[in-house]
């Protein structure tokens, strides 16, 4: 906090100093200053307006019943329960699959891999994968998980596809975090006789955890709102039950929102707004949990 205020202070000081010295500010500087502030604030204003309208429209339908009932052709009976649970299942499985793979890959690339041509090729491709459009992952998921591995249109197939989608980002973020751990920590551990694995497990990973988690949060937020690949692999539109196992069919909140928003009856547009509020709430609570975990790790961070 104090660090932040200091940063802002140094940024503002030169203008103020000039103002004091000359009695008037250089106008170009003021204009530029104002422009930058306007750009920064406009993003926030757009978000605020969006949140305001969605909440205003969706507020009337939000109730306990909305959260615990299945979708229905009657607007007053409809709810998001299967979609909400489907989204949670999907996110849970995606995290389970992508964290070990992503962090494992990052550890390998940062701590163990030698910079051979082969490894550089690997790194380059991971970076490339991060830029592939999500629908392509959907087609891949349909071919590999749904058809070839015969997983069907299940939560597991969806989670595997989503994991592929977010893995590059998770790996890149985890690598950055691991690279930011000072070498003195590794050398300290080696000096005390720790093996490479012990060093990574007990010192590097805990120190890098806040950075890894940040990358994970961003990826999960993306996966939660993603629709295209799920539609491609065949996530369904109308499901009134909750998946009991990873092989059950499912639907997710964004698909439910799309379905309601494209209905011709106005009551259903309100339901869509309500579902958006639920989606945002899920997103914010996942973020909150991650922030809490991050703080706990930061306490243990070796300095």
């Amino acid at each position: 906090m104090s660090e932040d205020s200091r940063r802002f202070a140094t940024k503002q000081d030169p203008t103020k100093a000039l103002l004091r010295r000359n009695g008037r500010a250089p106008w170009l500087e003021l204009v530029f200053h104002g422009l930058c502030a306007a750009v920064a604030w406009s993003a926030l204003v757009v978000l605020a307006v969006l949140l305001f309208y969605v909440t205003k429209r969706g507020w009337s339908v939000l109730s306990w019943q909305f959260l615990t009932h299945a979708p229905s052709r009657f607007a007053h009976k409809a709810g998001v329960y299967p979609a909400l649970m489907g989204s949670l299942w999907l996110i849970g499985l995606t995290i389970l699959i992508s964290v070990p793979l992503g962090v494992g890959a990052a550890i390998y690339l940062e701590e163990f891999a030698r910079p051979t041509r082969w490894n550089r090729f690997l790194e380059l491709n991971i970076a490339n994968l991060a830029g592939v459009p999500s629908i392509i992952y959907g087609v891949l998921g349909l071919g590999v998980f749904v058809r070839w591995l015969q997983l069907g249109r299940s939560v597991l197939a969806g989670a595997l596809t989503m994991s592929l989608l977010i893995l590059p980002v998770v790996i890149i973020a985890a690598r950055e975090a691991i690279r930011a751990v000072p070498d003195s920590i590794r050398q300290g551990a080696y000096a005390l006789g720790a093996t490479r694995w012990q060093t990574v497990r007990d010192h590097v990973l805990p120190a890098a955890m806040p950075g890894i988690l940040t990358g994970l949060i961003l990826s999960v937020a993306r996966a939660l709102g993603e629709t295209a690949p799920l539609v491609t692999i065949g996530a369904l539109t109308y499901v009134v039950f909750v998946p009991h196992s990873p092989l059950d069919p499912f639907t997710v909140l964004p698909i439910q929102i799309y379905n309601w928003a494209s209905d011709y009856r106005r009551e259903f547009h309100d339901l869509a707004a309500g579902a958006i509020v639920v989606l945002l709430a899920v997103l914010l609570s996942i973020n909150a949990v991650a922030v809490v975990i991050r703080h706990r790790f930061e306490k243990y961070r070796p300095r």
Binding site: S72, R73, L236, T237, Y238, V239, V240, P249
Partner: peptide, 18 residues
């Protein structure tokens, strides 16, 4: 499907739009 599942618990109907 909605009415069917109300009267036939234990059977699950899924409907997609492709």
């Amino acid at each position: 499907a909605e009415d069917f599942q109300a009267t036939h618990p234990g059977v699950f109907v899924t409907v997609g739009i492709s």
